[in-house]
Write a protein that binds this DNA or RNA. Sequence first.
DNA 1: CGGTTATTTGAAAACCATTTTCAGTTTTCA
DNA 2: TGAAAACTGAAAATGGTTTTCAAATAACCG
Lengths: 140, 140
Amino acid sequence: MLAALTRAGYSNTRARRSVLEALFEANGQASPSELLVLGRAHHPALGIVTVYRTLEVLSELGLVRRLHQDDGCHTYAPVQHHHGHYVICVRCHRTIEFEGCDIGAVIASVEAQTGFKVREHWLEMFGLCPDCLAPGRDAA
Amino acid sequence: MLAALTRAGYSNTRARRSVLEALFEANGQASPSELLVLGRAHHPALGIVTVYRTLEVLSELGLVRRLHQDDGCHTYAPVQHHHGHYVICVRCHRTIEFEGCDIGAVIASVEAQTGFKVREHWLEMFGLCPDCLAPGRDAA
DNA sequence: CGGTTATTTGAAAACCATTTTCAGTTTTCA
DNA sequence: TGAAAACTGAAAATGGTTTTCAAATAACCG
Ligand SMILES: [Mn+2]
Ligand SMILES: [Mn+2]
Ligand SMILES: [Zn+2]
Ligand SMILES: [Zn+2]
């Protein structure tokens, strides 16, 4: 990921490295302010502005994807599959990317129903992760 | 819709009526500030706070659904089908609800891949509406 | 109908995630 | 190593949304 940044002409800075590390230490996905906290463990002077700026660059390069939260805030997850979507645990917020979003038939049906030509889609799923499904668990 | 509000114990006020009218005059979906403008045609003193409050009540009663915009802002659309999702025109923002979101197989596959138990999902599609598909059109 | 009470309303202020500005710092590269 | 380009963080600005609060309105009862 750092290599991709460098290849794209961006400098290899301590601030950016700390954001990358934070991204991989998170629970599959994290908000900018969570990344700030995680990143400061590696680079205490890290500022929130740089977290936002780094995430924007990573998004443009397709290395990170922005997830939408119900309240309108955003969260970021490393991209694993070219066409991936996410399942998010509503209890502990663990997030896993899945592939095989096989909604071609749904898209065809929507196009037939509405006359639209569909170009993109958002799909996010919410539920409980294996840990949170296990009975008798209390900690997050 | 007004009847449903009354039935649920809410007062029938001029401000709420103007928000309802605005909702049906919109292009299938509208932001709070757009609804404010439309609503003021019916009730000039309408305030943005009441628009938000009315939308919150309508959401709770299941009469309106909140759509997520890419920038994190929200938009609201009248509910037509119990389990509906939306296609949004990226050019003119016309929004149509569709039903028959047949993603049971995708959900099963995600559950198998990840071990999660899926409870809910978000699905929004983006593309061009019939009008905006027609060549030689320029107006929105 | 009035009168009374409970609900609702809008302006202004508060909130808070995100973006912009800007002067100082760090990287890059020759 | 030194100059130029890229980057950084603090502080301020932005803008959608929520909270507060006193005044206005709707519902209800006689
Ligand atoms: Mn997909
Ligand atoms: Mn669905
Ligand atoms: Zn979990
Ligand atoms: Zn259109």
